[in-house]
Amino acid sequence: MDITTAVQQVPLNNYIVLSIMLFSIGVMGMLLRRNAIIAFMSIELMLNAVNLLMVAFSAFKGDSSGQVFVFFIMVVAAAEVAIGLAILAMVHRNSGSVDINHLNKLKW
């Protein structure tokens, strides 16, 4: 069995449904939890859902540009996590918790 038929054995619709599930779980976690670190992990879940969808389309189209975009998404996610966790460490130093309900100074 060559690789092309092997990739085609799983229909593209399955990957789309799986990605939508992962993205919805990420959104749900974002709305459900107050811990800022878990909110960050929900963002990572959403990014991974997009990555999975992009790799699936790229593999089915036979175009490697989609996978290069996934590579860039991973790079940006790494940078975002580094900055976000630095901000969280600073917030924790100033207010003693990472509860996002304490971050309401900009609210009026």
Binding site: D2, I3, T4, A6, V7, Q8, L12, V55, S58, A59, F60, K61, G62, D63, S64, S65, G66, Q67, V68, F71
Partner: peptide, 19 residues
């Protein structure tokens, strides 16, 4: 979506590096 012109080798390091 009908998979058009499927090439299974899009994810290999050689093609990815070229792109």
């Amino acid at each position: 979506i009908a998979p058009t012109s499927v090439r299974g080798d899009a994810g290999l390091i050689k093609n990815l590096g070229n792109t």
